[in-house]
Structures are given as C-alpha cells and as structure tokens.
C-alpha cells in the first residue's frame, strides 16, 4: 500500500485533489515527481535516491528537502492513515 492516500487524484499539470476531504492542492514539478513515485508504491527510503538521480542534486539537499516535503504531506493529511508513521 502506498505511503500517500491511494484515493488522491494526481493531475499531471501539478494539481492534487483529495476526494475524501474535498481539498485541492498546487504542487511544483519536483513535488509532482515525488507524488507519482509515492502513488506508484515507491518506499520513502528509495525516494531520496530517485530524486537525486532525476535532478542531479546532492544528497544533503535531497534529504533535507524530502524530509520537509513529507512533513508538509503529513500536516496536510495526505498520507495513508493505514501506514505506520512514514518517518519510521
């Protein structure tokens, strides 16, 4: 089961809709990449590497940005409640 809610609708143009809450969200390109990978079931641990590879960024930045992004997702309640804390 993916880390993010499996009901989330991801629009390729950078728009997320949560049909459970009725909220919609704007995301930038790197966030879209992450959301799609998460929806496809990529575990968080592999995400950092995927991000580094995709954008050619160094690991410190990838780690910091990713942690911050996951924190954003948590607070926006977009993570799968069935999963244990994604921070584990």
């Amino acid at each position: 089961m993916p880390v993010i809610k499996n009901t989330l609708e991801i629009d390729e143009r950078g728009f997320i809709f949560d049909p459970q809450t009725g909220s919609s969200f704007a995301i930038n390109k790197p966030a879209l990449f992450i959301m799609k990978e998460l929806k496809a079931g990529l575990p968080l641990r592999s995400l950092q590497e995927a991000l580094q590879k995709k954008y050619g960024i160094d690991s410190k930045i990838a780690k910091m940005d990713l942690a911050d992004f996951v924190r954003q997702l948590t607070k926006l309640e977009l993570l799968n409640p069935d999963k244990v804390s994604p921070l584990d």
Binding site: D11, R13, G14, F15, S24, A26
Partner: peptide
C-alpha cells in the same frame, strides 16, 4: 468538472 479548476490553476 473540477478539472476546469485544475486547468486554470496549473496552466
């Protein structure tokens, strides 16, 4: 449809 909102928001 909500896709219209998505369209104007993103493009």
């Amino acid at each position: 449809p909500l896709s219209q909102l998505a369209e104007i928001m993103t493009t």
